[in-house]
């Protein structure tokens, strides 16, 4: 199978250079062991990104780290306070609360969203009539973002006398809670909102599914594998780089959850949706403790990096790459 594939591409690339008229023939034969040259080529590709890294990324990172050792109220120059901000964190109840709230959100929202978007992607990858319309309809929720308009809408649907409770009361549930403003349930409304907006993961899965060569399924079908069997033995392994990607990015993004708590629940009731970044934002911009906020950001970076690093470590056991070498 692989020979067929490469032949085709070779044909393509044979035709290519002559059209473009590149003076390839004059080049000496490449020496694949030439490590330095390969590094140089690679850094050529990386130049734009390196410029961004060394200036904007590193610049703002170093400044943030510096600020984390200062007391900085945004309006007057920062004052060096050493490790004070980090020490304060240890005794700050709200810091602990916000960390716990965020972890709960990550643990619930990430896996559910991953499974839901994968299932929808499989459902929507079929080549049937009108599939584009369904995809678009199911993607629309992800396109409306999380603006104040959306917040109002969700408050209405999940409020005391909102749509959900109308339905529940009609089917005989007595006195259902006001979901969005109850300390036990508010965070799950936000989880639900995030699941409702599964579109970006779905699109990535769709692109991934498209990449799986059809002959694999055809061969499996000839061997008598069921649809379910094909899903577990072909789709999942072939899709694993993309699943891995969605898991890593989904986790990072879930840690970053901010807007929903900021505009739908205002962190409440009783701080039940006081997400980490929301608390950080309040400290920085509302309480004028940008130094503390910067210290929180540094801790945040470490926590997220450790979690993401852990996912990377597990990847060699379940992520299957076509290029087989480990990265």
């Amino acid at each position: 199978m692989s020979t067929t594939k490469s032949t085709e591409v070779v044909h393509e690339s044979e035709a290519g250079p002559s059209e473009a008229g590149r003076p390839r023939a004059s080049r000496p034969a490449r020496r694949p062991n030439d490590g330095i040259r390969r590094s140089l080529t690679a850094y050529g590709f990386l130049t734009p990104w390196l410029i961004g890294l060394l200036t904007l990324t590193l610049g703002s990172f170093l400044l943030s780290v510096y600020l984390s050792f200062t007391e900085y109220d945004l309006l007057s120059p920062p004052e060096w306070v050493g490790l004070d901000n980090y020490a304060t964190m240890l005794t700050d109840d709200l810091f602990i609360t916000s960390l716990m709230v965020t972890l709960l959100y990550v643990v619930v929202a990430v896996p559910v969203r991953l499974v839901v978007s994968l299932l929808f992607a499989v459902l929507l990858s079929q080549d049937i009539k009108g599939i584009g319309i369904y995809r678009t309809l199911l993607y629309i929720p992800s396109l409306i973002g999380t603006s104040v308009g959306v917040a109002i809408m969700w408050q209405n649907i999940f409020s005391d006398r909102g749509l959900i409770n109308m339905v529940l009361m009609n089917i005989g549930v007595d006195d259902p809670p006001a979901w969005v403003s109850s300390p036990q349930y508010a965070i799950y409304v936000i989880v639900l909102l995030s699941i409702w907006q599964f579109g970006s993961e779905m699109v990535i899965f769709l692109a991934g599914l498209k990449q799986i060569p059809d002959p694999l399924y055809e061969a499996a079908a000839i061997d008598g594998a069921s649809k379910v069997g094909q899903f577990f033995h072909i789709t999942l392994p072939m899709l694993s780089p993309v699943i891995f990607f969605n898991l890593v990015m989904g986790t990072i993004n879930a840690f970053m959850v901010f807007t929903q708590g900021y505009i739908i629940t205002h962190g409440g009731p009783i701080n039940s949706t006081l997400f980490y970044v929301l608390y950080l934002y309040r400290q920085g911009f509302q309480y004028f403790h940008m130094g503390y906020a910067a210290a929180m950001a540094v801790v945040f970076l470490i926590v997220v990096a450790v979690v993401a690093g852990f996912i990377f470590l597990t990847s060699k056991y379940w992520v299957h790459y076509e290029d087989t070498e480990d990265n």
Binding site: Q155, S159, D160, P177, A178, V180, S181, S182, P183, P269
Partner: peptide, 8 residues
């Protein structure tokens, strides 16, 4: 209203 309504 009860707490959960006021909180909204």
């Amino acid at each position: 209203p009860p707490a959960q309504v006021s909180a909204s």
